[in-house]
Measured scan of single mutants.
Amino acid sequence: MGTYKLILNGKTLKGETTTEAVDAATAEKVFKQYANDNGVDGEWTYDDATKTFTVTE
C-alpha cells in the first residue's frame, strides 16, 4: 500500500486529495472517478517519484 496524491486544476474546482492504494493503476481509477464525480475532465499526468497525479482542464 502507498499514499497517492491528486492535484485538481479544474476550471471551477481546484484542490488536492489523497488515497491509499496498492498501486498507481488502482489509485488512478479512484482519482478518475473522483474527478468525474466533481465534473473535472482534462489532461492527466503522473509523477512516479512523488506518486502524484495531476489533472488540468
Rank of each mutant, 00 (worst) to 15 (best):
M1K: 12
M1T: 12
M1I: 12
M1F: 11
M1G: 11
M1V: 11
G2V: 15
G2W: 15
G2D: 15
G2F: 15
G2Q: 14
T3E: 11
T3K: 12
T3R: 09
T3V: 14
T3L: 14
T3C: 09
T3W: 12
Y4V: 01
Y4C: 01
Y4Q: 01
Y4P: 01
Y4M: 01
Y4T: 01
K5F: 14
K5I: 12
K5Y: 15
K5S: 06
K5W: 11
L6Q: 00
L6N: 00
L6W: 02
L6C: 09
L6T: 01
L6A: 03
L6F: 05
L6V: 05
L6R: 00
I7C: 06
I7K: 06
I7V: 13
I7F: 06
I7T: 04
I7L: 08
L8Y: 09
L8P: 01
L8F: 11
L8E: 02
L8N: 02
L8W: 12
N9R: 11
N9G: 04
G10T: 15
G10Y: 06
G10E: 03
G10L: 15
K11F: 10
K11G: 07
K11Y: 10
K11W: 10
T12G: 10
T12P: 04
T12Q: 11
L13G: 09
L13V: 15
L13F: 15
L13Y: 14
L13D: 05
L13R: 10
L13Q: 08
L13T: 14
L13C: 14
L13N: 09
K14W: 10
K14I: 09
K14T: 11
K14N: 09
K14G: 05
K14F: 09
G15S: 13
G15A: 11
G15W: 13
G15F: 13
G15N: 11
G15I: 15
E16H: 10
E16N: 06
E16A: 09
E16Y: 14
E16W: 14
E16C: 13
E16R: 07
E16I: 14
E16L: 13
T17L: 15
T17W: 15
T17F: 15
T17Y: 15
T17N: 05
T18I: 09
T18Y: 15
T18L: 09
T18H: 09
T18E: 08
T18A: 07
T18M: 10
T18D: 05
T19I: 15
T19R: 05
T19G: 03
T19A: 08
T19D: 03
T19P: 01
T19M: 15
E20P: 06
E20A: 09
E20G: 05
E20V: 14
E20R: 08
A21K: 03
A21F: 04
A21S: 06
A21R: 03
A21W: 02
V22P: 15
V22E: 13
V22Y: 14
V22I: 13
V22W: 12
V22H: 11
D23L: 03
D23Q: 03
D23N: 09
D23I: 03
D23P: 01
D23K: 03
D23R: 03
D23C: 05
D23M: 03
D23H: 04
D23V: 02
A24Y: 13
A24F: 10
A24L: 08
A24Q: 13
A25Y: 11
A25H: 10
A25M: 13
A25N: 10
A25S: 07
A25R: 10
A25L: 10
A25I: 11
T26H: 14
T26R: 06
T26N: 09
T26M: 13
T26V: 07
T26D: 10
T26Y: 08
T26S: 14
A27C: 02
A27Y: 00
A27N: 00
A27S: 02
A27T: 00
A27F: 00
A27R: 00
E28N: 05
E28W: 11
E28V: 05
E28F: 14
E28G: 07
K29Y: 08
K29T: 09
K29H: 11
V30L: 13
V30G: 04
V30E: 08
V30P: 01
V30N: 07
V30H: 10
F31G: 00
F31D: 00
F31V: 02
F31A: 01
K32E: 04
K32S: 04
K32D: 02
K32Q: 08
K32V: 07
Q33Y: 05
Q33I: 08
Q33D: 07
Q33S: 07
Q33R: 12
Q33G: 07
Q33A: 13
Y34N: 02
Y34M: 06
Y34D: 02
Y34W: 14
Y34C: 04
Y34H: 05
Y34S: 02
Y34R: 03
Y34E: 02
Y34V: 05
Y34A: 03
A35K: 01
A35T: 05
A35L: 09
A35P: 00
A35R: 01
N36Y: 15
N36I: 15
N36S: 14
N36K: 14
N36P: 02
N36C: 11
N36L: 15
N36M: 15
D37Y: 06
D37L: 11
D37N: 09
D37E: 12
D37Q: 12
D37G: 05
D37R: 09
D37S: 10
D37A: 13
N38T: 08
N38L: 15
N38C: 10
N38F: 15
N38D: 03
N38G: 04
N38M: 15
N38Q: 13
G39K: 07
G39E: 06
G39Y: 06
G39I: 03
G39P: 02
G39W: 05
G39D: 07
V40T: 03
V40S: 03
V40H: 04
V40C: 05
D41A: 13
D41Q: 13
D41E: 14
D41N: 11
D41P: 04
D41K: 13
D41H: 15
D41C: 11
G42I: 02
G42L: 03
G42V: 02
G42P: 01
G42D: 02
E43Y: 12
E43L: 13
E43I: 14
E43F: 13
E43K: 12
E43D: 14
E43M: 13
W44C: 02
W44A: 01
W44M: 04
W44R: 00
W44L: 03
T45E: 07
T45A: 11
T45K: 10
T45M: 11
T45G: 06
T45L: 09
T45Y: 11
T45W: 09
T45H: 12
Y46I: 02
Y46S: 01
Y46M: 02
Y46P: 00
D47F: 04
D47M: 04
D47K: 04
D47A: 04
D47N: 10
D48S: 12
D48K: 09
D48P: 14
D48M: 09
D48L: 10
D48Y: 09
D48W: 09
A49M: 13
A49D: 10
A49C: 07
A49T: 14
A49F: 08
A49P: 08
A49Y: 11
T50S: 10
T50Q: 06
T50C: 05
T50W: 04
K51V: 03
K51D: 03
K51S: 06
K51L: 09
K51M: 13
K51W: 06
K51Y: 07
T52Y: 03
T52V: 07
T52A: 04
T52N: 02
T52F: 02
T52M: 04
F53H: 02
F53M: 02
F53I: 01
F53Q: 00
F53Y: 05
T54D: 03
T54R: 06
T54K: 06
T54I: 10
T54A: 05
T54S: 07
T54Y: 13
V55K: 01
V55E: 01
V55F: 04
V55C: 08
V55Y: 02
V55N: 02
T56S: 09
T56G: 04
T56W: 09
T56F: 08
T56Q: 07
T56N: 12
E57T: 07
E57G: 05
E57Y: 10
E57D: 08
E57L: 07
E57Q: 12
E57N: 05
E57F: 08
E57K: 04
E57I: 09
